[in-house]
């Protein structure tokens, strides 16, 4: 089985972001960037499938600026075999990304595409589902367990009521949830090795895809702040305040 893993470069999950005063977006200058955490889980899962002898090759792909090479190299250091970088400075939205990924799928013919469920910057949670639609493939979103079988894959999904299990015909699209696995730490020697692994650069034109955003972001603002609260000295005071002041119990 061949696995394709799309990875996005986002802000590091521990960064406290600040909104630009002019409303044009988030201030990302000098902010630590990293591989989107859900994509790390996707890379880890693909590597585990390879290590378990269930897959032969793990190919990474990222769409974005030249700086995406960093996240591709970390994925290669985790254990992926090679990487593709679709270089574009344009603003990216899920539909355009899904179209580009579809073109990559047509070139690479993977059996399974494993994406993150959500990028932690735009919080869209769309790309995997859109890719599956464009390919007319089945989708196993929010996966907490992935078990490949003959011509199919069984996926356990984290849904609002608990867990749900589906079997999907291969080829298929999977998106990862938090409980799927715990990504490994990258070992130093592997960082060196990753530098020598193949990384091919493509342009959106090579793929003949139109990345033009459909949505216009007209403003980005801070959310309304909560007004400051008080400290209570003990449980009695807490219950008293909740009952008599806030009137919620």
């Amino acid at each position: 089985m061949k696995l394709l893993v799309p990875v996005k470069r986002t802000i590091d999950a521990n960064v406290r972001v600040s909104v630009k005063k002019d409303g044009s977006g988030i201030d990302t200058a000098n902010v630590k960037m990293a591989m989107n955490p859900f994509c790390e889980i996707a890379v880890e899962e693909a590597i585990r499938l390879k290590e378990a002898g269930q897959a032969e090759e793990v190919v990474l792909v990222s769409i974005g600026t030249g700086k995406c090479e960093e996240v591709l190299r970390s994925g290669l250091a985790m254990g992926a075999d090679r990487a593709l970088l679709v270089e574009s400075d344009a603003e990216l939205q899920p539909l355009g990304v899904a179209k580009a990924l579809k073109a990559v799928v047509e070139k690479e013919s993977p059996d399974l595409v494993i994406l993150g469920k959500q990028a932690i910057d735009d919080d869209n949670n769309q790309t995997g589902q859109m890719l599956a639609a464009l390919l007319n493939w089945p989708q196993g979103t929010f996966a907490s367990k992935v078990e490949p079988g003959e011509g199919k894959v069984t996926v356990t999904r984290e849904v609002d009521g608990g867990l749900e299990t589906l079997t999907l015909k291969l080829p298929a699209v999977i998106t990862t949830d938090l409980r799927l696995n715990k990504p490994r730490y990258i070992k130093l020697p592997n960082i060196m090795k990753a530098k020598k692994k193949p990384l091919d650069r493509l342009s959106p034109d090579d793929l003949q895809v139109d990345l033009t955003p459909h949505l216009k972001v007209t403003n980005v603002a801070e959310p309304p702040a909560r007004s400051g609260g008080v400290r209570v000295e003990n449980v009695q005071e807490l219950v008293d305040k909740l009952h008599n002041e806030a009137k919620v119990i």
């Binding site: 406290r16 972001v17 932690i120 910057d121 949505l215 216009k216 959310p223």
Partner: peptide, 12 residues
């Protein structure tokens, strides 16, 4: 967006 740290106005 960004875990609710910002509110984006989008036009379609």
């Amino acid at each position: 967006v960004y875990a609710g740290n910002a509110i984006a106005t989008v036009q379609s």
